[in-house]
Structures are given as C-alpha cells and as structure tokens.
C-alpha cells in the first residue's frame, strides 16, 4: 500500500516536473513568470492529437508538435515579451495571462468545449505484480522526462550555446556586450520552454485519455508553486520540488484525507517551505 502510494506520488511528481520545466527555463533567463506556458501545454495537447490522428504515429506527432509549439514560443517571445522587457515585471506577467486566456479560447472556438479522447496504443502494457500497479503511460512519462532532462543537461553544460545561455541568464546586458547573440539564446530558450510544455500536454492527454480547452487552468497556477519552490529558474530545483509536491499531495490524501482541496496542498507546502527557507529549496546560485 505504501509502496503503491509512493509509485503514485512519483508518477504525479514526474507529471508536474514536465509541466513546470518550460516555465522554469523561461523564468531562468528572462525573469518572466510565463503563465502562457500553460497555454502551450494545451496547444501541444491539441496539436498532438491532430498530428496523431493524421499520421497514426505517436512519435511523429510528438516531434512535429514540439517543433510547431516551440516556433510559436519564439513568436510570442519576439512580438510580445521582447517589447515589454524594459517594463516592470508585472507587465509581461499580465501579458502572459492574456496570452493564456487567448489560447484557451481560440482552441475552444476551433475544437469545441467538449472533452476529446486521446487514445494511444502503447507497445508495452501496464504492469501488475505483487499487488502493485504500474501504468504504462507512467512509464512513457518517465522515459520522455528522462530524455528531455538529459538533453537539457547536455545542452546547458556541454555545449557552447549552453555557456552562452548561462551567461545570458546571469546578466543579459553584460552577455550582450561580450558579443553573445542574446536574442538567439532567448529564442532557443523559448523554443525549448514551449516544446517541453507541448510534450507535457500530450503526455497528460494520453494519461487521462482526455484533452479539453481548460486543461491548462490548474497547471497554470500549480506550475507557479513548483517553480517558486524550486528556487525560480532552477531546472534541477524544479524537478525536486515537483517530486516533493507530488509526494506531499499523495501522502496527505492517502493518510490524512483531503481536509483541503488537493490543489491547495501544493500552496500550503509552498508557504511552509518558504517560511523556513525564503529562497525556495535551492538558492539562486545554482540557477541554470
């Protein structure tokens, strides 16, 4: 029973990690709380279903969706955030909320408000042994999360563009004077941030076999709790924070009961942890 709940919590935590990673990357480099990332999550889920039904191949659907959503991220960055960069932080925040609402409603108008099924037959089945259940979509989520995290780590630590990225994250203006093409770095950052969100949207769509225009609304605020807890803009911290929130939610639900809504537990945990450690779990030093 405890072991099953632990597995449940890891699955939920991985889902959170994947959904918050895009916004973490963007906060890490520009210091913008990108609520619109939850819009990319919804957009990704719908494009994923579209390309899956067109191609019949989930891998193709993943790749094409991630590229298109990533390009969409570049456009948002170029035409919405870049002109607002010199403004106080709350202005891009409001813009990002606006974009999120816009995306949700455009999708509702085109695809309709009803829940659509996202049934994908995976080449491997769910596992059941010794009273434990491991869902096959969880396995897929672990695998995709691992691949994406590895790619991110490799890009940031092992490549020249990663170095430029870290430099830009530390100080945009100085990086620029050092000859780094910061616009390109920021574009890459948004590309990855939005394509991560898109992959999360597809995976969650498959996990619950349903996508709908408002599927991003819980994500949009829970993502904030997780990236704040993870030390704002720190991918590793976000991963740990996501697993921790997944664990706390599951264990509170399993052993105490939902005396408050499950989605509020993340925020209670956030408040308690911030009271003890105001920097979040990880300090800014280890950010990107």
């Amino acid at each position: 029973m405890f072991l099953q709940q632990l597995l449940n919590s890891i699955a939920i935590g991985s889902v959170y990690a994947l959904t918050s990673m895009g916004a973490t990357l963007i906060y890490g480099i520009l210091g913008i709380l990108d609520i619109a990332n939850a819009g990319a999550y919804v957009l990704g889920a719908y494009l994923g279903l579209l390309f899956y039904s067109l191609s019949g191949n989930i891998l193709i659907a993943f790749v094409v969706t991630m590229i298109i959503t990533g390009l969409f991220g570049i456009l948002i960055q170029k035409y919405v955030y870049r002109p607002l960069l010199s403004q106080p932080a709350y202005i891009p925040l409001i813009a990002s909320i606006g974009i999120f609402i816009f995306i949700e409603n455009i999708i509702r108008l085109i695809a309709g408000p009803t829940i659509k099924e996202f049934t994908v037959n995976l080449p491997f089945q769910s596992l059941n042994f010794a009273n434990l259940h491991i869902n096959n979509v969880w396995v897929l989520i672990f695998i995709v999360a691992l691949i994406l995290m590895f790619l991110l780590w490799y890009l940031l630590k092992m490549t020249k563009i990663g170095l430029a990225w870290r430099a830009t994250a530390q100080d945009l203006d100085i990086a620029k004077t050092m000859g780094i093409n910061t616009n390109r770095v920021i574009s890459l950052n948004f590309f990855l941030g939005y394509s991560f969100a898109a992959s999360a949207g597809i995976l969650i769509g498959i996990l619950y076999n349903s996508i709908y225009p408002t599927m991003g609304s819980v994500v949009s605020y829970k993502m904030l709790a997780i990236i704040v807890l993870g030390g704002l803009g720190n991918p590793f911290g976000t991963l740990v924070a996501a697993l921790l929130i997944g664990f706390i939610e599951t264990m509170v639900g399993a052993y105490i009961g939902f005396f408050i809504p499950r989605n509020a537990i993340a925020f209670v945990a956030l408040v308690i942890i911030l009271l003890i450690s105001p920097q979040g779990l990880f300090t800014q030093k280890s950010r990107i």
Binding site: M1, N8, I12, V218, F258, P261, R262, N263
Partner: peptide, 20 residues
C-alpha cells in the same frame, strides 16, 4: 468519504486507499 475539486484528474492515491 472524500471530496475533490472540479477539474481533478488524479485519483490513484484515493482509489488505492479505497481499495484497501
């Protein structure tokens, strides 16, 4: 007895408990 918010999609922890 337990309640959940509209929009909740993750019931594995609760259902695991109910099964027990």
């Amino acid at each position: 007895v337990d309640s959940f918010a509209i929009g909740e999609r993750e019931f594995n922890p609760v259902l695991t408990k109910i099964k027990g």
